[in-house]
Write a protein that binds this DNA or RNA. Structure first.
Length: 566
RNA sequence: UGUCCUGUGGUGUAAUUGGCAACACGUCUGACUCUGGAUCAGAAGAGUCCAGGUUCGAGCCCUGGCAGGACAACCA
């Protein structure tokens, strides 16, 4: 293992797939080549689960000096769209991976696939079945009961050839006929019971247009595409495990050398409090439960990006969770830990007040202003310092003041002295309230000798507060996100729809926040730490007059935690 | 009452050819601190699904159970 403790990236772990590849290499398989592929279907946006697969596949290529292709599995035109193929490319690139000149589509192979089907017919290994879906399904039997042969199973090669030709020409209606591989109706594996390999679909395909009236099924396309691309290790998720004998069967019909791709399955990612099904994510988007695929509450790559996650943090997360065949559930807190870890080291610090409470420094000269030095990132000296304006009227966080502070509340209270970060020690002298008894303003005095945050007499103060000068503050909107679902496993309940668990408080918009002027120059997706609060990132919805910040994740907060446990 | 897969602290992953069950997250202490952050130090927490067997020695090998998951779209 490589010692990369310097950059603190998690050490790259090995896993069972790496071991199997090493073994294949030792045995001299496939001329020592390692070639993987990431094969999304363009029927939705990529999510964090895909990120795991992307990191795995591209990571293997990197580790073994091989290659990794991007291949769109576009065999079902009724669900696939160009918008998705574009978003997928963007997301893979953003994650930091490069397929170079190897971007392919299953539809690139439609011609070859069709020829291969004809070859199987000629060899008596495929036949046209005239029955409808329901009949075929019934004949297939059940996992515990063998299937029965179709009455059309023993048609002549000539008849099959003719029928398939006419299916291809569009002479028949959708659903009226299919092409099936002739394998074994009695197989204990349902996928070997004469699987359907071509169906009639008169849909417009996003790439081939109206050229085809028949489209290959997944099982008939995937392995063959792997074969033609020279893939050596075809890595997919556990649910395809039972497909493997069929995958191998088609490869056996195709191969003419020692080379053969090998399918290896691993457990897909499950995260607590989130759903990973593209179908369900699409439902949230279509029915407006969220604001699009890139809503920052979505587990999509584009949602995480907009939320303020970094590619590094997602890659580190993938590395940390490992790769196995155990179907488990990862705690989201591990994902959150990964962003905090990265952002702590890289994010520009800034002061911002979410729930403002006005403070007047009564002994500060009326029209005076000054600029104080603030550190941009205490974890990274090279990021330097900046100036923060200070004046008589400030905003502090409402939560940072309590009129009757409980034990262990160290922040501001009547008569108490605290430090304003990088500025002065201040002492609260008066609490101003409105007729309803609501606190509207605080009066404080400051100690001019404590400029910069230290008092010459060495007296200590228990808390440091963040603040913003009222006159210089940039009024901003801040969007606070919480988990989208309030159940650990929203889709794990048999009789309850996952939408029942939608968290009504997953988005809280704070329209009147104040942030220090430094943020004026920022661009969407810039990352900040609002000191003492959390990590925030500028949203695309920002206007120059009014920036909008998304909270990526709050800082760990031992005070809040102690309160919760009460 | 089929086939295939999987069972290791709360969670996720490790443990060369059998050799004192390790690491990360989380949790709890304490130190430090101009972020109640970060950092640092420490602690608790599993005897590896169960039962037999082989062995000086089993998480790992053998036998038999048990539990969970996948498979019966003209989806991928």
């Amino acid at each position: 293992m490589i010692d990369n403790s310097e950059n603190k990236e998690p050490v790259k772990k090995s896993n069972f797939i790496h071991s199997q590849i090493e073994k294949d290499l030792q045995e001299g398989k496939n001329d020592g080549r390692v070639h993987t592929r990431f094969p999304p279907e363009p029927n939705g946006y990529l999510h964090i689960g895909h990120a795991k697969s992307i990191c795995l596949n591209f990571g293997i290529a990197e580790k073994f000096g091989g290659k990794c292709n991007l291949r769109f599995d576009d065999t079902n035109p009724s669900k696939e769209e160009m918008e998705y193929v574009e978003s997928i490319q963007k997301d893979v690139r953003w994650l930091g991976f490069d397929w170079e000149d190897r971007m392919f589509y299953a539809s690139n192979y439609f011609e070859k696939l069709h020829e291969f089907a004809i070859k199987l017919i000629n060899e008596g290994k495929a036949y046209v079945d005239d029955q409808d879906a329901e009949t075929i399904s019934k004949q297939k039997g059940t996992p515990t009961r063998p299937g029965q042969e179709s009455p059309f199973r023993n048609r002549t090669v000539e008849e099959n050839l003719d029928l398939f030709r006419r299916m291809t020409l569009g002479e028949f209606d959708e659903g009226s006929r299919v092409l099936r591989a002739k394998i074994d109706l009695a197989s204990p594996n349902m996928h070997m019971r004469d699987p359907i390999i071509y169906r009639i679909m008169k849909a417009h395909h996003h790439r081939t247009g109206d050229k085809w009236c028949v489209y290959p099924m997944y099982d008939f396309a995937h392995g063959q595409c792997d074969y033609w691309e020279g893939i050596t290790h075809s890595i997919c998720t556990l649910e395809f495990e039972v497909h493997r004998p069929l995958y191998d069967w088609f490869i056996d019909q195709l191969k003419d050398s020692d080379y053969r791709p090998r399918q290896i399955e691993f457990a897909r990612l499950n995260l607590t409090y989130t759903i990973m099904s593209k179908r369900k994510l699409l439902e949230l988007v279509k029915e407006n439960y969220v604001n699009g695929w890139d809503d920052p509450r979505m587990p999509t790559i584009s949602g995480l990006r907009r939320r303020g996650y970094t590619p590094e943090s997602i890659r580190n997360f993938s590395e940390r969770i490992g790769v196995t065949k155990v179907d488990g559930m990862i705690d989201v807190s591990l994902l959150e830990y990964s962003v905090r870890e990265h952002l702590n080291k890289t994010a520009q610090r800034v002061m911002g007040v979410l729930n403002p409470l006005k403070v007047v420094i009564t002994n500060y000269p009326e029209n005076q202003e000054e600029e104080l030095d603030a550190i941009n990132n205490p974890e990274d000296e090279s990021m330097g310092t900046r100036k923060v304006p200070f004046s008589k009227e400030l905003y502090i966080e409402r939560d940072d003041f309590m009129e009757e502070p409980p034990r262990k509340f160290f922040r501001l209270a009547p008569g108490r002295e605290v430090r304003l970060r990088y500025a002065y020690f201040v002492t609260c002298t008066d609490v101003v309230k409105d007729e309803n008894g609501e606190i509207t303003e605080l009066h404080c005095t400051y100690d001019p000798a404590s400029k910069g945050g230290n008092s010459p007499d060495g007296r200590k103060v228990k808390a440091t507060l963040h603040w913003v000068s009222a006159k210089h503050a940039v009024k901003s909107e801040v969007r606070l996100y919480d988990r989208l679902f309030n159940d650990e496993d929203p889709s794990g309940h048999k009789d309850v729809d996952f939408k029942e668990f939608l968290n009504p408080d997953s988005l809280k918009i704070l329209p009147d926040c104040y942030v220090e002027p430094f943020v004026k120059a920022s661009k969407p997706l810039d990352h900040f730490q609002f000191e003492r609060l959390g990590y925030f990132s500028l949203d695309y919805d920002s206007k120059t007059e009014k920036p909008v910040f998304n909270r990526t994740v709050p800082l760990r907060d031992s005070w809040a935690k102690a309160q919760q446990n009460k």
